[in-house]
């Protein structure tokens, strides 16, 4: 922490950490994790072990890396320019996540607009239906002309999914209240509403898990239920994963709040997580409309 010693580090100096072990730990962790995942998928015996080791390393890396950042942040070595860098970095990271989800939404729209109607013989694809899939009529939801995965039922939008929508929207409100409380210096309110936010997040994940179990057990709706099951589970699954990650991050931020971190003017980490949470929220709205409802 060469530049961290306050005597020599005027705040107008951009903080450049001198060296850090975490990136290499992270690289090794990522490598170990995906190696483990490959072994798992290839049914090699050592898979679970390597994979778990990778995840543990990843956890260590995150703890260590963010630990350093938190220390530096609390030691006030970051000036405004550094703060701006963090903000921009987070924004563009979220944008890249948006594009990741776009790929899956793209798949959903393509299937609904093109491939399924084509298999049903629409447009220039008369012969596709006539020669290959004679009895198939295009409709949505569908598991395709070969009825992959067998008959299934879908989860109606205005049951659990609507409740989940309400939960996430509420959590968007609670985190905003928490943010205002932080800015107003009301730590009590902050702590309560932040806790409410991540509890709602966990509740969402719990309900979502419940929904999955019902889908698999009662509705025969699985990842293998043709294109509907594929898009349904991949979209909601990746979203659920993001909610989980977001909720964990909120929890960490909450713990930091309890320790008295952040000031009314300086709380990038809080805001970053709040943005992330809103992003997760917006993705859900799109999911609710395009996956469950329409």
């Amino acid at each position: 922490m060469a530049h961290a010693d306050s005597t020599h580090a005027p705040t107008d100096k951009y903080y450049v950490p001198h060296s850090s072990p975490w990136p290499i730990v992270g690289s090794i962790a990522l490598f170990t994790t995906v190696m483990g995942a490959s072994l798992l998928l290839n049914d090699a015996g050592s898979g679970p072990l390597v994979f778990t080791l990778g995840l543990v390393l990843l956890a260590i890396m995150f703890a260590g890396w963010f630990g350093d950042v938190i220390k530096e942040s609390e030691a006030r070595v970051y000036n405004q320019a550094v703060d701006r860098s963090f903000r921009m970095g987070m924004m563009w990271f979220i944008f890249s996540e948006v594009m990741f989800f776009s790929a899956f939404f793209g798949a959903l729209f393509y299937a609904r607009q093109y491939s399924v109607p084509w298999l049903g013989g629409e447009g220039s694809k008369f012969f596709t239906n006539y020669l290959l899939w004679r009895d198939f009529e295009a409709s949505w939801p569908t598991n395709g002309p070969a009825a992959v995965g067998g008959d299934f039922e879908v989860i109606p939008a205005f049951g659990l999914p609507a409740i989940n929508t309400a939960i996430l929207l509420t959590s968007g409100v609670t985190i905003t209240i928490a943010h205002h409380a932080l800015k107003a210096g009301n730590r009590m309110l902050l702590n309560v509403f932040l806790a409410a936010t991540f509890l709602l997040g966990y509740l969402f994940v719990y309900l979502q898990a419940h929904e999955y179990i019902e889908a698999y057990r009662e509705l025969n709706l699985t990842l293998g239920s043709g294109i509907y099951g594929s898009t349904f589970f991949m979209l909601t699954g990746f979203h659920g994963f993001h909610v989980t990650v977001g909720a964990i991050m909120l929890t960490v931020i909450w713990l930091r709040c309890l320790k008295g971190h952040f000031t009314p003017t300086n709380h990038f980490a809080f805001e970053a997580v709040a943005w992330y949470w809103h992003f997760v929220d917006v993705v859900w709205l799109a999911l609710f409309v395009f996956v469950y409802w329409l």
Binding site: Y114, S115, N143, G144, G226, I227, S230, M234
Partner: peptide
């Protein structure tokens, strides 16, 4: 994992 994004049988499409 048995998804059929790119298989016509399940309603997907290799062209996708």
């Amino acid at each position: 994992f048995g998804t059929t994004f790119f298989s016509a049988a399940g309603g997907g499409d290799p062209v996708m």
